[in-house]
Amino acid sequence: MSEAPIRLLIADDHPIVRDGIRGMFTADPRFEVLGEAGDGAQAVELARALLPDVILMDLRMPRMDGVTAIKELAKLGNTARVLVLTTYDTDSDVLPAIEAGATGYLLKDAPRDELMRAVHAAARGEAVLSPSVATRLLGRVRAPADPLSARELEILRLIAQGTTNREAAARLFISEATVKTHVLHIYTKLGVNDRAAAVAVAYQRGLLTLDNG
């Protein structure tokens, strides 16, 4: 007796990408494409209505992004496995998606056979990570970020309040150049490139809370 096909939902804001993915899977009897969504909100609606086994989810979409959609599905108790399929593999993309509950994370340049295997594995509830993402996560585990110093935490709190380097320098009675140096150290330790990302990662890691941010 043959196994029932794996039921798929495709969520991506680019019609050409959706067409390519759909064509790949509809040509294989082991899969059944139930529907397509152009944004995260539509993905949540269709997942509730169609009950797919696996959702291929892009991350950066209008109206509702992929991470928010994954969180919404978890809140609703939807049992579909979410396999992120995106072009981005930075910490600020990977970590929130995994934390939100994604079963796997693949890049769009993955070979066809790898994608097929990943969907099968995701349907079984197995974690699936592209090599670059796996390397990034392992690096995080093996080499945890340096802790921020008391002064760096102080400056980070000021950044979260929207304070400029000059204003922070005046408040802390240090030079603006010293503040800039501390900010660069903060970026390096948190693995970010700008103030907004630093604040976001700090909240994720509990370095800032709503009380002290």
Rank of each mutant, 00 (worst) to 15 (best):
V82W: 05
V84D: 05
N78G: 07
V54T: 01
G66H: 00
M116Q: 08
N212D: 15
T181Y: 10
I159Q: 09
Y187I: 07
A69C: 01
A160S: 15
T103G: 01
A134V: 04
S2T: 11
A41L: 13
T209D: 02
E167Y: 00
A198F: 02
I159H: 01
A122E: 06
A127C: 09
L59S: 08
K189R: 15
A200C: 03
A47Q: 02
A168W: 02
A4F: 04
L210F: 10
Y203M: 15
P15N: 07
A202W: 07
T164S: 15
E154K: 13
V94C: 02
A123N: 11
V201G: 00
R48S: 13
L95P: 04
R136Y: 00
D39T: 04
E126H: 11
A202D: 08
M24R: 15
E3Q: 12
N165Y: 14
L95G: 02
V94H: 02
V141G: 06
R151S: 13
R60D: 12
R117H: 14
V67E: 05
A49V: 06
A4K: 14
M57D: 03
L50R: 15
L76W: 04
V128K: 03
S132P: 02
G77D: 02
V54K: 02
A118R: 01
E176D: 14
A110M: 11
A123D: 06
G191H: 05
I70V: 13
A43C: 10
I6M: 04
D91H: 13
R112F: 13
H182Y: 14
R151C: 05
Y203P: 03
S2F: 08
D28A: 06
D39G: 09
G206K: 03
A100E: 04
D89M: 00
D91K: 15
R151D: 12
L83V: 02
D58N: 09
T188H: 15
N78Q: 12
G40W: 04
E45D: 15
L207T: 10
S149A: 10
T68R: 12
E176Q: 15
L59R: 01
V133I: 14
L83Q: 05
D58T: 01
V54R: 01
A97D: 06
I174E: 06
A177Q: 14
G77L: 10
R151F: 12
A197S: 14
V67L: 04
V192P: 00
L129H: 05
L172H: 08
L73I: 03
R171P: 02
R48Y: 05
V183Q: 10
L56N: 02
E114G: 11
T178Q: 11
D93M: 12
